[in-house]
Amino acid sequence: MIVMKIIAFVFFFIGAFFIFVGTLGIVRMPDVYNKLQAGTKATTMGFLSVCVGLIFWEPSWILRALVIAGFVVLTNPIGSHALARAAKNSGIPFAGGKDKLQPDQDIISKGSVVNHGLAKDSAKNADTGTDPRAVRGGKK
């Protein structure tokens, strides 16, 4: 019986960790859409883990724990979706910023090479590679 309690504690701590990660995402993420992403998914996972721990803690409560888990799994994405629609229709802008891992987006959109660090690297590798964008970047 003590083994079941220890397993329940492990699941409780996993759930507490995931809920902590969700609230940390609420504080740290730059955008309301990113906040929804972090806050809903991580807390749903943590809540499911707490429900599994509750089933291990007291096995006669399995029906109510499953009802609560099913309800939260069904309704949490609905609330997240409604909040995302409300944020979009309220005119909250997306967080700006450039995707630094894809410097080729500048080449595709503008037709000319903007000198980032990574574009210079792709121009350096233009002799061996067969990428036409990289060759054009090498000419400039």
Binding site: I26, V32, K35, G39, V72, N76, S80, L83, I92
Partner: peptide
């Protein structure tokens, strides 16, 4: 923004 407050409130209720 009120929608951002509602996002954090959703997490708090969970």
């Amino acid at each position: 923004h009120p929608v951002e407050k509602m996002v954090s409130l959703d997490v708090i209720t969970t």
